[in-house]
Design a protein around this nucleic acid. Sequence first.
DNA 1: GAGAATGGTCAAGCTGCTTGACCAAGCGCC
DNA 2: GGCGCTTGGTCAAGCAGCTTGACCATTCTC
Lengths: 148, 148
Amino acid sequence: MQNSEAMALSAALLAVAGELTQRIHEGVVARGFEGLRPAHGFAFARLSPAGATVTELAAHLGVTKQAASQLVDEIVRKGYAERRPHPEDARARLIVLTERGRACTRAAEESAADAVRAWGEVIGEEQVRALGRELTRLAPYGPIRPTW
Amino acid sequence: MQNSEAMALSAALLAVAGELTQRIHEGVVARGFEGLRPAHGFAFARLSPAGATVTELAAHLGVTKQAASQLVDEIVRKGYAERRPHPEDARARLIVLTERGRACTRAAEESAADAVRAWGEVIGEEQVRALGRELTRLAPYGPIRPTW
DNA sequence: GAGAATGGTCAAGCTGCTTGACCAAGCGCC
DNA sequence: GGCGCTTGGTCAAGCAGCTTGACCATTCTC
C-alpha cells in the first residue's frame, strides 16, 4: 500500500472519528444534559460498570491524577456522580455515577446509535457491522487518548 | 443494531483514531521533526498542495482566525512554512510550506503507512482496504475537528 | 467615491492541563 | 508495636492553546 493511500485512510478515519464525537456530543446536549464535554463521556464509560477511583480514571483517560480529580469535581458538582468511601481501602474514594449520570450515559448510547444508523444508510448495514468487527480487532487496550 | 453495539463500535473507532494519531506523531518525532503537535499535521495537509490563507486554514481546522494565525506564527518560527504576499489579494497572505515543511509532511505519510501496515498484519490487507473504502465514503467534507 | 465586508493582527482573558508540594492511609520489615 | 517507603488524593501555582473584542488595511458593492 502506498503512502498516499495510507494517508487518505488515516485522514478519513480521523475525520469520521471527529464527526462521530461531535454528533454524540450534540445528541447528549439535545437530550438535556448540558455543561459536559466529550471527555466526560469517556470518564462515564469507565465509571459506569461499578465505579472507579480517581487514579484509575486518570490512567484510563491518560491524564494526571490532578486533572482527573478536577474532572470528578466538575461532574460531582453537576450531579452526575458522587464520591463514596472506598469499601476496601480507606485512602481511596470510589467515584460512582448517580441516576442522572446513568441517564446521561444512556443518552450517549442512543446518540451513538443514531449516528451509526446514519452510516448504515450510506454504506449499508452489513458494511457497518464489518467496520465494527475490524475496528474492534484493531482497538488497543491502553488509555483512551484525545485524537490531537 | 442495538445501542450497546453502536457504543462498542464508537469506542473502538475513537480508540483506533487516538492510537493512530499518537503513532503518526511518534513517527514524525522519530524522523527528527520536533516541537510539533498533531494539530500541525492537519494544517500541513491543508497547506501542502498550493498554500492557503490564514482564514482558510482556520476554517479547515475549525478554530478562530486568531488561533490559526498563532499556529502559523509557530510553524513559521520553526522553519516549516513562510508567509508570502498573496498574488491576487493584497489584504491576504499566502502561507506556504518550506522544503523542511514538505519533508515533515513526507515523514508523516511514512509514519501513517507504517501504522496502516501494522493493521494489515492483524486483520489482513484486504480488510484494511475495505476499511479505507467504507471510511472514505463516510468521511464528511467539513472542517477537521479534534476528537474531543 | 462612500460604506460595508473581508483578511489579518494585537491584546486580554479563560479553561484544562501540567508540575510541585503536601497529607493521610496502607504495606513491609525488623 | 514502630519505623520507613509506597500509594491515593488534594491544594496551589503556572503554562499553553484557545476564545472574545478591538483595531487597521484592503477590497467589494452600489
